[in-house]
Computed example of a mutant assay.
Amino acid sequence: MGLRRKSREFALQFLFSHDFQGRSSAPEDVDQEINVFCRSFDVGDKALPYGEELIHGICTHIDEIDALLAEHSHHWRVERMSLVDRNILRIAVYEMQHCDQAPVQVAINEALEIAKRYSIGESVAFINGILDAVQVSVNR
């Protein structure tokens, strides 16, 4: 497994916990929460920098990302999506919009591979459909 995938998985695990517990997205709170998370779980030192970049970026742009997801997830409110799927989508959308190092298609493919590992089979098609729609709107 590549380093970026490990970083994305770390971000997913953190964001799942963060979302589940309804934690604050203020940068200082997120930093403290990351420190606690890393002491509790084995997060590789090499995966940490990009994972932290994703986490901070998503927490900073959460309203913008969720609005984009809501716009493209017909018949599904963002808050009703499973925690896993919602956070996989957030990671991919953040990368699509804010990370020049990750081409859009790579962000989508990585999201689908992570969904295969952490979510249910039907979620892969759900995530793919939303990300394809987001891709079209982002590339206008």
Rank of each mutant, 00 (worst) to 15 (best):
Ile108Cys: 04
Pro49Gly: 10
Ile120Pro: 00
Arg39Gly: 07
Asp29Val: 15
Val30Glu: 09
Arg77Asn: 02
Glu52Asp: 11
Asp19Gly: 02
Ile91Thr: 06
Ala125His: 12
Leu69Cys: 02
Leu54Tyr: 09
Lys46Glu: 14
Glu53Ala: 09
Glu113Cys: 15
Ile65Gly: 01
Pro27Lys: 15
Arg39Val: 05
Pro27Ala: 10
Tyr94Gln: 09
Val84Gln: 02
Thr60Lys: 05
Ser73Glu: 02
Ile108Glu: 06
Lys116Ala: 14
Leu48Gly: 13
Val124Tyr: 14
Lys116Asn: 10
Lys116Arg: 14
Glu28Val: 04
Ala125Ser: 05
Tyr118Ala: 08
Gly57Glu: 06
Gln21Glu: 04
Met81Ala: 08
Leu54Lys: 06
Val124Trp: 14
His61Thr: 00
Asn109Val: 03
His75Pro: 00
Asp63Trp: 02
Ser82Gln: 05
Leu48Tyr: 14
Phe41Asp: 00
Ala67Pro: 00
Leu48Cys: 15
His61Asn: 06
Ile114Thr: 09
Phe126Gly: 05
Met96Ser: 09
Ser119Gly: 04
Asp66Ser: 05
Gly44Tyr: 13
Cys99Trp: 13
Ile91Glu: 08
Asp29Arg: 15
Phe37Arg: 08
Gln105Ala: 07
Leu69Gln: 01
Val104Gln: 04
Asp45Lys: 07
Pro49Glu: 11
Leu83Trp: 13
Leu48Lys: 15
Asp85Ser: 07
Gln105Gly: 04
Tyr94Cys: 10
Ser73Thr: 01
Glu122Cys: 13
Arg117Val: 04
Arg86Asn: 04
Pro27Arg: 11
Leu48Ser: 15
Ala47Met: 07
Asp45Asn: 12
Asn128Tyr: 08
Ile91Met: 09
Val36Glu: 07
Arg117Ala: 05
Glu110Gly: 00
Val78Gly: 01
Tyr50Asp: 12
Glu79Gly: 03
Ile127Glu: 11
Asn128Arg: 12
Leu54His: 03
Gln21Ala: 09
Val36Ile: 09
Asp42Met: 14
Ser40Leu: 08
Asp19Ile: 02
Pro27Thr: 14
Ile58Pro: 00
Glu53Asn: 04
Asp85Met: 02
Glu33Ala: 14
Ile55Leu: 12
Ala102Val: 12
Arg80Asp: 06
Gly57Asn: 05
Asp63Tyr: 01
Thr60Gln: 08
Ile114His: 10
Val93Pro: 02
Ala92Trp: 11
Ile120Arg: 03
His98Pro: 00
Gln105Cys: 00
Cys59Gly: 06
Gly57Ser: 11
Asn128Cys: 10
Ile88Val: 03
Ser123Ile: 06
Gln32Glu: 12
Gly44Asn: 06
His61Lys: 11
Trp76Gln: 05
